[in-house]
């Protein structure tokens, strides 16, 4: 018995990927089986855009060149990030639901490394919010934005990184929680400020000292900034595209690490 057991007991990277794949697959299948969620993901950017677009109308107009003058143009990358932010974080409510049912427990007793559990679940949420971000991005031509294939791909990459980082953050917050109410409370406590101080609403350059500092340490700022660079290459840049993307990548890795550390705790307290 010793030999096969020993061979089996060190899970190959292959089987870890299979586990991550199957968790990702479940997240996506569950999503499209719940029609109201599908409608929400497709309709909310649409609705958001129609309301904001018509609401702003020609207010705040200040010039003619694209990108800077029309406030709606300014607001577009921030709105995209906001949609990604909410979808990413809220998909991880499924962690709390899985825990309430026995589903999560059955995954925890499987011979699956915790990193594969985090990767599968987080990629599931990331897929959904990236799709939503891409739908919103499809409205860009309506604003008169036309991008090259390269900047389209980089925009999608940015959306993916922001989605992944925020989904991982949602995972780390949801993991120790046992009620979705508590989750909502925490989310409201720091997601709204995170978004407000990301350069989505007002530019970093015009902000006063301490707000500006907060904005500079807010990783979301770099997501908004990267998108703005890609969508409006002619407008003045606060950070170069490369440094924004690099910061974003670091943020993503950090968040994945955080989610992993949370999921890896195994102690003497009940796991259910």
């Amino acid at each position: 018995m010793a030999t096969p057991a020993a061979a089996l007991s060190s899970p190959s990277p292959d089987s870890a990927l299979l586990a991550a794949f199957t968790l990702w697959w479940r997240e996506v299948v569950r999503f499209y089986r719940q029609r109201s969620r599908v409608v929400g993901v497709i309709a909310s950017p649409l609705l958001f855009w129609v309301v904001i677009g018509s609401g702003f109308g020609s207010s705040f107009r200040s010039g003619d060149a694209p990108g800077q003058q029309h406030y709606l143009d300014y607001f577009y990358p921030g709105a995209l990030i906001m949609i990604v932010l909410f979808t990413s974080i809220f998909t991880m409510m499924s962690v709390i639901e899985d825990r309430k049912e026995g589903f999560l427990l059955s995954v925890l007793v499987a011979p699956v490394p915790r990193s594969a559990i985090v990767l599968g679940k987080v990629l599931g949420g990331t897929t959904l919010s990236t799709i939503q971000g891409a739908i919103f991005l499809a409205f860009a031509p309506l604003l008169g934005i036309h991008f090259s294939a390269a900047s389209l791909l980089l925009s999608l990459l940015t959306i993916f990184l922001v989605s992944f980082a925020l989904t991982a953050l949602g995972f780390a917050i949801a993991w120790p929680m046992d009620s979705s109410q508590a989750f909502h409370a925490i989310i409201n406590l720091f997601l709204i400020p995170l978004w407000l101080l990301s350069g989505s609403l007002f530019p970093l350059n015009g902000a006063s000292g301490w707000v500006r500092m907060l904005m500079q340490i807010n990783p979301l700022t770099y997501g908004v900034e990267a998108l703005r660079n890609l969508l409006y290459p002619a407008s003045p840049q606060t950070f170069s595209l490369a440094s924004s993307l690099a910061t974003l990548l670091l943020f993503t890795l950090f968040m994945f690490g955080l989610a992993f550390v949370m999921a890896n705790r195994r102690g003497s307290k009940p796991a259910a």
């Binding site: 586990a19 479940r26 049912e101 589903f103 259910a272």
Partner: peptide
């Protein structure tokens, strides 16, 4: 070891086959 918890662990949004497919993947 195989573990069956008191709380239900099947995913009701998946089919019977899909539930077992998912479970099988977790065990390689």
């Amino acid at each position: 070891i195989g573990v069956v918890f008191q709380a239900q662990s099947v995913d009701v949004k998946l089919t019977a086959e899909e539930n077992l497919w998912h479970q099988g993947h977790l065990y390689g």
